[in-house]
Design a protein around this nucleic acid. Structure first.
Lengths: 111, 111
DNA sequence: GGAGATTGCCTTGACAATCTAGGCATCGCC
DNA sequence: GGCGATGCCTAGATTGTCAAGGCAATCTCC
């Protein structure tokens, strides 16, 4: 299976990260692992993208953080969706769906 | 209908531009109009993105250009797909499909 | 005890691609 | 004359991603 272009996530990463928290609080490392596993490693967030993204989302008021203890007993920062974050996730999901449909339609068009 | 984020095309623009030429040579302005009209204005390429993209694609050997005369009798630069450009279009189309499916699957997942 | 992998967070710098906002010339139409 | 459409182009800012590192604690296996 060919690798996706490394930049591919551009513009979708926020939605994916928000989605990761839609089942409850998650810490960064868990978010990365979740995306990787749930897509069979097809989608991967680099840590150098993930953490800045989390700060960005927090700054925008879409998520909130608390230090806690991971499943393995380690210090970890848990992020959770705020009300506004949940709205944003829904907004972005709808937008993605529209966008993806449009692109797919265009690329599939035949002569 | 809400506007898509302005950055949305990031990473897909090349494929769309290549696709525009899959029916034969097209000039820049026509490409922009084609995308706009064929997606009901849902997808738009700004000229400031389009022309640099065309130079990029040409530099990579995916398209070739010739000056000619537009349908309305004006001077216009017509771009056409090269063999390699056609391969690239197919490659990117497949990749897009895989990527879009993965993202859609993740965003659609329920608790 | 020691080595290496895993878990977990973080930062810096480079880079690519898009957009915004302009400019220019020609043509058709009112 | 003016204005919109057609057509090409560029400079600069922005932004979001990545690559590549670093740090510390824990676990596993020898």
């Amino acid at each position: 299976m060919p690798k996706l272009r490394s930049d591919r996530l551009h513009g979708t990463l926020d939605a994916l990260v928000l989605k990761a928290m839609s089942w409850g609080p998650r810490h960064g490392y868990a978010i990365a692992r979740w995306l990787e596993q749930s897509t069979d490693a097809e989608l991967r967030i680099e840590e150098g993208s993930l953490y800045p993204a989390l700060y960005r989302l927090e700054e925008r008021g879409w998520i909130e953080a608390d230090w806690g203890t991971s499943e393995l007993g380690r210090r970890a920062k848990f992020y959770r969706l705020t009300e506004r974050g949940d709205e944003e996730l829904r907004r972005e999901t709808v937008e993605w769906t529209r966008f993806a449909a449009a692109v797919t339609r265009v690329l599939a068009a035949t002569a």
